[in-house]
Design a protein around this nucleic acid. Sequence first.
DNA 1: AAACCGGGGAT
DNA 2: ATCCCAGGTTT
Length: 358
Amino acid sequence: MKNILLQNFNISDFQKDLINWYQANKRDLPWRKDQDPYKVWVSEIMLQQTKVDTVIPYFHCFISNFPTVEALAAADQQDVLKSWEGLGYYSRARNLQNAVREVVASYDGVVPDNPKELGDLKGIGPYTKGAILSIAYNKPEPAVDGNVMRVFSRLFYIEDDIAQPKTRKLFEAYVREVIDHDDPSSFNQAVMELGAIICTPKSPACMLCPVQEYCQAFSEGVQENLPVKKKAKKQRKIPYVALLIRTPEDKYVIEKRSSDGLLADLWQFPMVPVGEIGYSHIESWFYQEYGISLNMKDHAGKLKHVFSHLIWELEIYHAEAELTTVEDERLRLVAKEDIANYPFPVSHQKMMVHLNTV
DNA sequence: AAACCGGGGAT
DNA sequence: ATCCCAGGTTT
């Protein structure tokens, strides 16, 4: 690709101004203490759709629990999910462990340093592949995330819809044009740091920008209008009755979710899809589904939990069941103080405050 | 291409 | 309420 840049865009000066700013202003982040490819990898997976401040404590805990590729490969999946609890997008944790096991089995525990092998690992897409190759191995590969698309859309006045998958390829072409081959690690991180600190979605700090003189959007005064992004659809609402089912031995019924789909392999309190069956059929539905007779008790509260693509509206009820054991493989009877040993989604963590109220 | 997949923080 | 965050996988 050629002729995508303005003739007066001096690439070398741009690289120098950007990287000098980065070296002087970069944040002291735990995954920047060395270039261990495993730690870079873990940080990049955690940072997908997740803010730096949210990731930092999880990163410390995760690396402490699983310091090496070998340690993570040998770990129990439930322990990995427990370390991921609250971070969201739990398939990231499952894919990361699967990929790490592949690295141990096929690559002698060494994270691959080439696009083909790296990109074939579970959970490593175009962005993460480029991030690991550039940051850990200093290879001049693009790592285009939301920051890069925002910064470059303004620098080069690109009006393509960044919500469309094909648009990422356009930005990768721009990065290949302007990336610094002497220090691709600093270059890619500098663009992302600029997007996080200066070139923010709203009210960008253009007066502090080290590359303001190169920015076409700033020169036209349209930086607030970029990038262009199509609006997302509204989430659909799904009503459930969530049940805090107590047994005569003062244990509670919890359920392990399916291994695929939403919140895979996490635990929850049983839920009845009341929108499909109606409130009058809760006990019969539950008996048909689990073979357990419920005695419905008090209404404990309600909560709304918003996901990226749907909304749970939970009505929380106490219930009793005359159980000492459970047959269903999904279910388990657990004392209140042992519930914390299982990975729960945040929505059901919020329900635990009601465990004391009856 | 569009849908699915979490949770939190800023505005 | 709305947006977006160091995105990837599945359909």
